[in-house]
């Protein structure tokens, strides 16, 4: 049975249709990502799933409970990290967590134990009794994450969990989610418009103007595109082209100083090419399609404006382990 089920969900704000008939489901233990540009309807979907917003039509359930009819049961089974900060700056880290623990009905002793555990998980043990006002943005975010897991939720919602954080903190948070998933089998629903982050998810749905325009594993989505681009440089590009045509039956294009090839499985073909060719090759490179390419091919626009994503096209072809 799915942990999140959404069926033809619609939410309108006056004339604006923020969520326009989306359907999807998330299996237990999955990390599911919503990838989409600003205003796509990601936060609106989360608000409905966590019972803060009523849908205009359609159905949503979390942990087997209907988000409208059985809101209380849904609330008991979820943890949430909102897009915008929701800490009380006038309380200490400990007090913020204790407040949360009591709201979720934990008794004093359990609360204290879990708070200590959660704080050490996010590396804030030393700041336990400091006012949150004095925390940096990254520390606040980590504290919110600690708070989100305090009630041992079955489903954890994270709305842009790493927005505005430096790469180290981002990595730390990702490491944390991976560990959490491994150790507790928690289901994670997250939204992002960082492409790199979407690549970490088991499955993603690409959402634009309130609609899901594609979904699947990151690899599946990218496989739908033409494939990887290989670039081989050689002193004799013509000879190289001929040899590849003869030995591998492929049609490379000549570019200055070498050739380019578009292939489905670049990571497998590249070693074979290098091994089988006798023409001297001076350099090789491979670029895989990014999720932005997927988004671009589906909508004709980039997820984020050029240059605003520090990772986007530059880093996203780096393969991440585990997929």
């Amino acid at each position: 049975m799915s942990n999140i089920t959404v069926n033809s969900l619609v939410r309108k704000f006056g004339a604006v249709t923020a969520v326009d008939g989306i359907s999807f489901s998330v299996e237990p233990g999955e990390v599911f990502g919503f990838l989409g540009p600003n205003g796509a309807g990601k936060s609106t979907t989360i608000s409905i799933l966590c019972t803060l917003l009523a849908p205009t039509s359609g159905e949503a359930s979390v942990g087997g409970f209907d988000c409208v009819r059985d809101a209380d049961a849904v609330r008991r089974s979820i943890g949430i990290i909102f897009q915008d900060p929701t800490l009380d700056n006038g309380l200490t880290a400990f007090e913020n967590l204790l407040f949360h623990a009591y709201l979720y009905g934990l008794d004093r002793r359990t609360a204290r134990k879990r708070i200590d555990d959660a704080l050490s998980l996010v590396g804030l043990s030393g700041r336990k009794n400091e006012l949150v006002r004095k925390f940096s943005g990254g520390m606040k975010r980590r504290l919110e994450i600690a708070r989100g897991i305090l009630n041992y939720p079955k489903v954890l919602f994270m709305d842009e969990p790493t927005i505005g954080l430096d790469p180290q903190t981002r990595n730390m948070i990702w490491e944390f989610i991976r560990e959490l998933k491994k150790n507790t089998g928690i289901t994670v629903f997250m939204t992002t418009h960082y492409l790199e982050e979407a690549e970490f998810c088991d499955r993603i749905a690409i959402i634009d103007t309130g609609r899901i325009i594609a979904s699947g594993t990151p690899a599946e989505l990218k496989a739908g595109l033409q494939g990887d681009t290989l670039k081989l440089s050689a002193i004799d590009p013509n000879g190289l082209m001929m040899e590849i045509r003869e030995k591998f039956g492929m049609e490379p294009k000549i570019t200055d100083g070498g050739i380019t090839l578009t292939v489905k499985q670049g990571d497998e073909i590249l070693p074979a090419l290098i091994k089988g060719l006798s023409t001297k090759i001076t350099a090789v490179s491979m670029t895989s399609p990014t999720l932005n390419d997927v988004f671009l091919s589906l909508t004709g626009k980039n997820i984020r404006e050029e240059g605003s994503d520090p990772y986007g096209p530059v880093r996203s072809y780096v393969r991440h382990g585990g997929h």
């Binding site: 019972t51 803060l52 209380d72 609330r75 900060p85 929701t86 800490l87 009380d88 407040f99 709201l103």
Partner: peptide
């Protein structure tokens, strides 16, 4: 204004 109300409203109370 500071978002904390959401933390309260989403709790099972």
């Amino acid at each position: 204004e500071f978002g904390f109300l959401k933390e309260i409203l989403v709790a099972p109370i």
